[in-house]
Amino acid sequence: MSTAKDRAPGPAGSGLNDDIGEEKRLALYRSQVRLRDAEQRAFDLFLQNLVKGTSHLSLGQEAIAAGFAEAMVKGDLSFCTYRGHAHTLARGVPVEKVLGELMQKDNGLMRGKGGSMHLTSEKHGVMGSYAIIGAHLPIACGAAWRAQYRGDKDVSVCFFGDGTTNIGAFHEALNFAAVWKLPVVFVCENNLYMEYTPIKDVIPIPQPAADRASAYGLERILIDGNDADIVYRTAQKAFARARAGEGPSLIECLTYRHSGHSRADPAKYRPEGELEEWKKHDPVKLYRERLKQFGVSDAQIAEIDASVRKEVDDATEACKAAPSPPLDIITTDVYADGGWAWRN
């Protein structure tokens, strides 16, 4: 876990001008509130039967997405999982584009061709959301290899859950990245459960990612994933290492998802009281309190909350009004010529 020093927000009344600074702290807060509101809205829309297919929410895990995204610069690349709404939104993708895809409307990020598990927005650096566990770790290595080959300074950041650490591609990618010293940062969001089974039941070590780092010659990094400041600082350090050509990092972030695995899961496998205990360490609540400690006024916080709520409300209305995608795109973009022809 993080040290007490990492956790401390700084002496009360010291202002926001520490290494993170006021502007970035407000951005971290806004981002977390935005992820929370957008995903809560997705859940509400699901209950109204307006979100179709599946959806995997990150409610309670917002500090990781926000902390890493705020530490990234333009050109850095995100590789997400099917639980990727938050990581996609955190890179600046409009809420309307994400909700539109979840609602399978023509205004969706991929016009309904990908669905909630495959959110992609290359212009925002979101290089895809991958629904086969572990598949994107080697892919992130490849993007990082390109950066190394060309001397580009961007970092590839690859997010995955605790369950991924038991699949072969995880180990292949970690070894490959370490041997080739690639500028890639692997981020394990350990929310304690794979799907329904606790991760601790299926590993012979306490920490699924951190306790395996030494096998690849990497530092053991285990942090409080619900504290956006700690996440942000850890990300910055890993990115600096990657950009300096010193190779990959593996970061395990402890967190907890407030919702079930997917929309179909009421999460009844959790012991009584566990969720309530973690909600005391809710990242959004924690960060709101911290801003107040730093002297940010209630009015300023309310203004951020209101502007985020407006974006989510406007996006919801736009998505409800948007048409379904036209059927003529069913056969587009199978091949690079834009079509689907496999014969003459």
């Binding site: 080697p138 290899w145 390109r146």
Partner: peptide, 17 residues
């Protein structure tokens, strides 16, 4: 590591190689 080989090829291809 065949998965690493093909995955790395894909990531490189997606980003310009």
């Amino acid at each position: 590591s065949e998965q690493a080989i093909l995955g790395a090829a894909m990531g490189a291809a997606m980003t310009g190689l």
